[in-house]
Design a protein around this nucleic acid. Structure first.
Lengths: 204, 204
DNA sequence: GTTCATACTGAACGTTCGTTCAGTATTGTA
DNA sequence: TACAATACTGAACGAACGTTCAGTATGAAC
């Protein structure tokens, strides 16, 4: 790779990283291109050289989040045996990222505003669906193995998603060391709520 | 009361109601004064005659939400005996209001944007604190009576708040009849998670 | 019927926003 | 060194925003 190509890629990354932090902090609408200019030192035009539009930049970030999260999970999943361990693992990973939940947060705001490309709309819906399917699969495995009670995995997936989403929102106002505690509390309550009667020895 | 005063009050209410629906649907920033003008038929100037500013209007709505919720709760609380019933009751009330959670939703977005009066900021923080205190008190009663296990009520209050907040967000994309199901599922999981071992007969 | 406070209008304002583009700098290529 | 492609700049744009205000309509008070 060229020096030029390398530098270009670094610039692209610098913009993406700054935008990611800003979107997470301030939300989609409240983050302006000017904010990103200030945070990066790049010019306005340069941002539009690297990304098609504000929406395109956001969509790129969401895809990136999704991939990072998937990768991160794959790297760690072999540490966990039971569903309980997996859920606590998820909580830990989510708490560690200060950007928290990869999809549902800024995406939610973006989702409900009217003006957006139908391409962006459908892609986001797709990712959201995949994410819920991931939750459902994890829970279904726990149910099948008898670790969790005979619940409806699809409905539980919504509850779990709600819980994690809510925690990630509430955690924004917390001190850094309180965040993992809230995540763990949440998972503990959830797990006790769904674990089968036969095996009620929870970790922690 | 005069005919004029009455009509003025009706106009004020018409503006407030429309604004409430719009803020809930689209969020704070994405709702423009022009949107409210379109929804009410009132003029821009008239909105500023009745309310100090967009922020003032929003703050008024939050106070109104808070009062309505408190009143609604007081009207219904005598139907519920146990903590479990109270939580299911809360879920039902929240699900019934399509505006859902009175404080945490649009307020969260409003909260994290920088430009806002310090008056608005502190008032919002105050209301949020009261709301968490309400959760905590309810849970503490359950713990004291032995219905719930010996948990930390303050920490549980955060978990419950997260759960309800998450559910209210996720529920936005749902069909009307699915919403109460999600709320009930959430409370069921939460309750099973926190109920003491001695009395594991849950309602539902 | 005249007076007056109240209720309301809508054009205009100053900002801020996302986006564009003509032009410049920098680097790879021949 | 000359040329071309890529990377970047920043002024300028039109649209949208929250807010203001001089002016008008309306019902209450006398």
């Amino acid at each position: 790779m060229n020096q030029k190509q390398l530098q270009s890629e670094q610039t692209r990354k610098r913009i993406a990283d700054a935008a990611r932090a800003l979107f997470t902090q301030k939300g989609y609408k409240a983050t302006s291109i000017e904010d990103i200019v200030s945070a990066t030192g790049s010019s306005k035009g340069n941002i539009y050289y690297h990304f098609k539009s504000k929406e395109g930049l956001f969509l790129y970030l969401v895809e990136e989040w999704d991939q990072e999260w998937t990768q991160n999970w794959k790297n760690n999943v072999h540490h966990y045996r039971t569903t309980a361990e997996k859920l606590y693992g998820m909580a830990e990973l989510l708490a560690a990222d200060d950007l928290n939940h990869p999809l549902t947060k800024a995406a939610d705001e973006f989702f409900r505003q009217e003006e957006k490309t139908s391409e962006a709309e459908s892609r986001l819906a797709e990712l959201m669906g995949e994410h819920l399917a991931f939750n459902e699969k994890l829970l279904q495995e726990g149910i099948d193995s008898g670790e969790l009670g005979p619940h409806d995995a699809k409905r539980l997936a919504y509850v779990l998603e709600s819980l994690f989403f809510g925690v990630s929102q509430l955690a924004r106002g917390f001190n850094r060391d309180q965040v993992p505690i809230l995540y763990r509390d949440a998972v503990a309550v959830f797990l006790t709520g769904v674990t089968s009667q036969k095996q009620k020895q929870l970790p922690l």
